[in-house]
Nucleic acid binder design. Structure first.
Lengths: 259, 259
DNA sequence: CGGACGCTTGATTAGGTTCAATTACTGTGG
DNA sequence: CCACAGTAATTGAACCTAATCAAGCGTCCG
């Protein structure tokens, strides 16, 4: 009997079936019939965990699988010819990444683990064959991609129009919403990415991110606990107000359903 | 016999079939069999043209159709609660818009005509039913959305990391590429959007756009013909160099396959 | 213990915005 | 067809936000 929501994740390296996995309702909310889950279970590969800094795939690599993150977190970024990197999303446990690779069979982004991360590997060929029989699965994929587009466009608004304070506030409430929806605390969580990554993602210099965090602490909007990575949102309403967000689109910032 | 590539577009208001339409190979490059084209043709509605400034649909409207632009051009934007608008894409003749509305059955963006614009209206219900039978159509939709994601992420890089000069250069070569692929001149075209729209899209003030255009003219990279909307790219190579673009991703900027 | 890296804070700078004024279009009605 | 009004585009000057440069501190890990 699982002690907590994600206890079955611990056994990821071993033969835990999708049915037993506490993530099944999150990573593939398909309302599949029981035999369908069994079929999906049969095609999923469970590998050893990725260590912090390890690359899951590189921009331009041949597309082979979609991954469901079971525990841990990753960042995804694109690289310009001059070598500049732009982080386009962070992904946490319970999210699916890599779907976007099916356009011309290459991954368009590089994905790197931010901490020790375990995943379920769903080979594309099998998924594709399965999708032929399961309309729900196809719809799920389409919906995920459609949502990703809307979220990326919210990011365009953020990068184009918002001030540094608004950007950071938007990020914080969006991450908060995502954790909340996954059954975790909306007000206390760990930022697994560095200040550098955060600045890169939000279009700000590291120093600016640091300064805004300090300002938010002075305003008693947030507080850091043990380390500068463990944050508590004291005044979520205040952060929302700062962020200028559309209702229900908070999670747009930073959430990349499709990788 | 058509006189030019788009001559059949003129008869859009009348009963021109998809098969005769010179855009068929552009807006739905599906390699459909002949009888499939006939089926598609049967469900398409051809309405009267939209005038400059008219709204095709508004953010939040119920999703009903996908549109193929037969002539003219449009802009699409999202609106933040505080009323700020962010243009997320321009669309020209031969491009499909509105696909993104299938996520929760609402259009997530507002789309407005930049000039007199004619479209083919493909009701979603019919398209959905047709897609059940035609794997190519489904793949096409997936590919379009996947491409859109990559393009939006290129825009995130542009808005987050590029200078004003790089942004405008990126935009110009991307529009050039798009026109070129459609069989038009890569070096001479009309900018149907205002400087205001351009600035909004690129995350710049109108004045900045104007100044960069002037600077580009001084450097003899571009030239304006009759008006400030009719541009000629004199030194495309030079613009490419300025833009810091990935090979083959130039069209990412401004191109929104999915609306 | 030492070195590297990550984070914070301060001082200075710069790219782009904002404000303001002028000129060039576009479209409309007489 | 021209006059006029309203909008779009350009250009200049002042200002400001966030970047850059620089220094110091903390922390993780060999």
């Amino acid at each position: 009997m699982p002690q907590n929501k994600f206890s079955s994740v611990k056994g990821c390296g071993t033969a835990v079936s999708c049915q037993d996995c506490s993530l099944s309702s999150l990573c593939l909310p398909l309302s599949l019939h029981e035999q369908d889950i069994d079929r999906l279970d049969a095609i999923i590969k469970r590998g050893r965990p990725y260590q912090k800094g390890q690359t899951l795939w590189r921009q331009g690599d041949d597309f082979h699988s979609v991954l469901a993150i079971r525990s841990g977190s990753v960042k995804s970024f694109i690289t310009s010819p001059s070598g500049e990197e732009q982080i386009v999303g962070f992904h946490f446990a319970g999210e699916m990444i890599g779907l976007n690779g099916l356009f011309n069979k290459k991954y368009p982004i590089t994905t790197v683990a931010l901490e020790t991360t375990t995943v379920c590997d769903i080979p594309y060929d099998s998924l594709d064959a399965l999708a032929d029989d399961l309309p729900e699965l196809r719809d799920q994929v389409l919906q995920s991609m459609s949502q990703e587009i809307s979220e990326d466009q919210q990011m365009m608004l953020l990068l184009s129009k918002k001030t540094s304070e608004q950007r950071l506030a938007t990020f914080l409430v969006s991450v908060s919403e995502r954790f909340h929806r996954r059954g975790y605390s909306a007000s206390r969580f760990r930022l697994t990415m560095s200040r550098n990554d955060l600045g890169n993602f939000l279009g700000l210099a590291v120093e600016t991110v640091s300064r805004i965090f300090s300002k938010f602490q002075q305003k008693e909007l947030i507080r850091f606990l043990d380390s500068s990575r463990d944050i508590e949102l004291i005044d979520i309403a205040g952060l929302y107000e700062l962020a200028d967000l559309q209702d229900g689109t908070a999670s747009a910032c930073g959430k990349r359903v499709v990788g």
